[in-house]
Computed example of a mutant assay.
Amino acid sequence: MTIEIVVGLPHLSQGPILERARRMQRPMLISANCLSRWRTAAGGWREWRGWRTGTLDNAKGLKSLDLDSAGYVLMARYRGYPWSIADYMALAAAYPFRRFAAADYCCEAEIAGDREEVLDRIARMVATNRECRSRAGDLGILDRFMPVLQGRHPEDYERCAEALAWSMKPGVVVGVGSMCRREIHGPDGLLAVVAHLDRVLPPTGPRLHLFGVKGSALPWLLPFAHRVASIYSQAWGAAARSDARRRQVSKTDRLAAAHMERWTCAQLDRLREPPRRVRTTYRTAPVSVSADPWDAAIRQAHAEIRALIESGDLAHDEVTAGWIETWAADLYRRRHRAS
């Protein structure tokens, strides 16, 4: 088995980038955000106004095209999705994408600042996976649906996989998110996550698609080629910006297209390197937990709400900080009366 290189496209506008992508005949991926229509509302904020599905006609001639939900960008800019799951799934059905990823909740430290937030986002991730899958079945595109796992620690991804057990089947490609800012080595590194999932998933179960993986990781991933189906990156865009700054020239689409092809060729060369020995390390220190009764009530409130979200009894986008505190206060009072 080999690992497929999926190249990220910044847009589908006719021009040098799309022309080069057609000539390269590599699998490509676009973000839902690059197909969005926005307008500036009164007050200066941006307002989402639907999809520019007409630009999908420009994808003609590409080898294949995948769709990503743009989770990290949207969480960083808007703290959430500006569209509904129904909106996103309408986009997924508007073009014969090879694969479309579930709308996900990324768990990078820049987005999820503490442990409770990571766990909350995993619960929401389970709920959005379930809703995307259900709508995909209704739209007749279930065969192209790609579930996505999220987390901070390797065990988080296992928790997510257990909650999505209905997707962990042979022949299914499962996305693995929150990878692009992750180190290759270390107890929470890329290799630790992949090695952990390889151990806990069924041997003949799903293969993994890794979002945002550094090209330098490829030789280290080769021993997992039986499990890793593909990696995706748009790192060539950053290289193009850096090159333009260094040379003090404009970052034109023609310059960017050259970097896209050069980056892709470099990754294909890395696939021909000898596999490197995997040095994974695992955490041994226990996670400290506050003994304060109010902190304990907050943790329990989070846990109970997460369970309702994962079971589908509570909408994933309805929870607010005030609601959690009210729930925790009720738990705290009940414990105080019982004691």
Rank of each mutant, 00 (worst) to 15 (best):
Ile3Asn: 03
Val6Glu: 10
Ile17Arg: 08
Pro27Gly: 09
Trp38Leu: 06
Ala42Leu: 08
Trp51His: 03
Asn58His: 13
Asp68Phe: 01
Ala76Gln: 13
Gly80Arg: 00
Asp87Arg: 05
Ala93Lys: 12
Phe97Gln: 08
Arg99Asn: 06
Phe100Val: 08
Phe100Trp: 10
Ala109Gly: 07
Glu110Cys: 15
Glu117Asn: 14
Val118Thr: 13
Asp120Tyr: 10
Arg121Ser: 10
Ala123His: 04
Asn129Asp: 05
Cys132Glu: 09
Gly137Leu: 12
Asp143Leu: 09
Arg144Ala: 10
Arg152Thr: 09
Pro154Gly: 09
Asp156Gln: 01
Ala165Leu: 06
Gly177Ala: 15
His185Ile: 04
Leu191Phe: 05
Ala195Asn: 07
His196Ile: 01
Arg199Cys: 03
Leu201Ile: 12
Pro202Asp: 10
Gly205Val: 08
Gly205Asp: 08
Lys214Gly: 12
Pro219Gly: 11
Pro223Lys: 06
Ile231Asp: 12
Trp236Gly: 12
Trp236Ala: 11
Ala238Ser: 10
Arg254Trp: 04
Cys265Val: 14
Gln267Trp: 09
Arg276Trp: 00
Arg276Tyr: 00
Arg277Thr: 11
Arg299Thr: 11
Ala301Trp: 02
Ala303Glu: 13
Ile305Glu: 11
Leu314Asn: 03
His316Leu: 15
Glu318Gln: 15
Gly322Ser: 07
Gly322Met: 08
Trp327Lys: 13
Arg337Val: 12
